[in-house]
Each structure stands twice: as structure tokens, then as C-alpha cells.
Amino acid sequence: MKRWVKRVLRVLLPLAVWLGVWQCLAGWVGLELLLPGPGRVLERLAALCPTPLFWRAALATLGRVFLGGALGALGGALVAALSARWEPVDWVMTPMMKVVRATPVASFILLIWLWCQAGWVPAVIAALMSAPVVWGATAQAIGDTDPQLLEMARAYRFSRWKTARLVYLPSVLPAVLAGCRTALGLAWKAGVAAEVLCRPRRALGTQVYNAKLSMETADLFAWTAVVVCLSFAVERALWWAWRALDRRGRRWGHGDP
């Protein structure tokens, strides 16, 4: 089988199978209120797409989750770097990160909602979800940095800044970026969940909630499909970034970063 045929089939075959299963289930249920078919959802999606509401909601959600997720990731990486440099920072921050990681997201959403406007809650939640993941990945990668290279850096009188730039940064970057991918996936789900609960004015989560409230199940599916598609798009963008770094890593002789 030709390579391009295989690539197309790898996308189309699962799509066809699962859409078929969905259609069969919808036909078997026979009630659009409970389970609309894929055709009806596609129809609603096509109707929603050209509306300003759709784009405003999609862009606002994307902006919130991406901003929050990116700030959380940056914060997590920074805390990991500071923890590696100063042990007391590690003593203080490790339990904090572990508590954040273990706390149910719903509790966080409700708590943050007490303190912030509804529009900020998804961003804060996205930050809280991504920070511990990137912190864990960065801390692990810093700990795994080749001790022989660090000994070489000391013997060859590298400054701290040079050691960070030439030894630590290239060693940890691939692992950190892989952590960012996982973190953004989590941030996306949690951010939309926060929107559903807090219902900011412009948000995909709010539209999901409104669709459920007005019993427009096809709209509920359509908005959810938008969330899933945007999640895939963001995931894909990060994957490209990761692959670019991976290629560089191979050029560096890293193998799998």
C-alpha cells in the first residue's frame, strides 16, 4: 500500500467507523433530544460557524486557556528551576505543587470563582492545572542532567549562567516541551469545565451549558465538537513545535528527547 494512501486511510477509516457507530446508536435511540445523529450535529455546526457568537466564544476560550496554560507552564518551569538552585525553595514549593496536583478541579473552580470574576476563572484554572505538570517534568529533567557534563562545566570554569545556558537548558528543553503538551491538554479540559460552571459572557463552555439548559442536544454536541477540534488544533501546534525540537535533538545526537 502506498504511503499516502495509508496516511489518508489512517484518518478516514477510524472517522468512518466511529461516525457509523454514532449514527447506528442515534438511529437505535430514535430521539434527537437524547442522541442526535452526526448529520444533525454537522448541520448545527454549519449553522453556528458563520455567527459572530461562535468566533467570539471560540477565540475567548482559546485565549483564556492558552494564556492561563502558558503562564502556568512558565511558572511551573520557573519554580522547578529555582527549586533546583535553592533547596529551601524546593522544601516550600514541592508540597504546594503536590497539593495543587491532588486537589479536585471542581473545588478549585468554585474557590477561584469566590475570589475572581467569572471571565478570569478558566484562565486561573488552566494555570493551576498546567503548573504542577510542567513543574514535575522540569524538576525531573533537571535532576536527570548528566552529572559528568556538570562536573565538566565546573572544571572548565563555566559561570552559573553559562552552565544554565549550555548544559541545563538543552538537556531539559525536550522534556519540558513534552510536559507542556500534557499540561495544555489538561488545562484545556479544566478551562472549559470552569467555563461551564462559571459561565463567562463569551465562552465555549457557556454555550455548552446554554445548549444543555435549552435542551438543544444537537447544539450541545456541536459546541462540544468545537471544543474537541480546538483542543486537537492546539495539541497539533505543540506537537509540531516538539517535533522541530526533536529534529534538532537528533541533529544534536540526542535520540529521543
Binding site: 562536573e151 572548565y156 563555566f158 538543552p170
Partner: peptide
């Protein structure tokens, strides 16, 4: 050898 896989030959020298 303890070389840095991400630095070129010339960079290894200029780094120190």
C-alpha cells in the same frame, strides 16, 4: 570526552 552534543567543534573551544 564529556562533549556537549548541541555544540559544534568550534563552539566547544570558544565556550571555554
Amino acid at each position: 570526552d564529556r562533549l556537549l552534543p548541541w555544540r559544534t567543534v568550534a563552539q566547544h573551544l570558544t565556550d571555554v
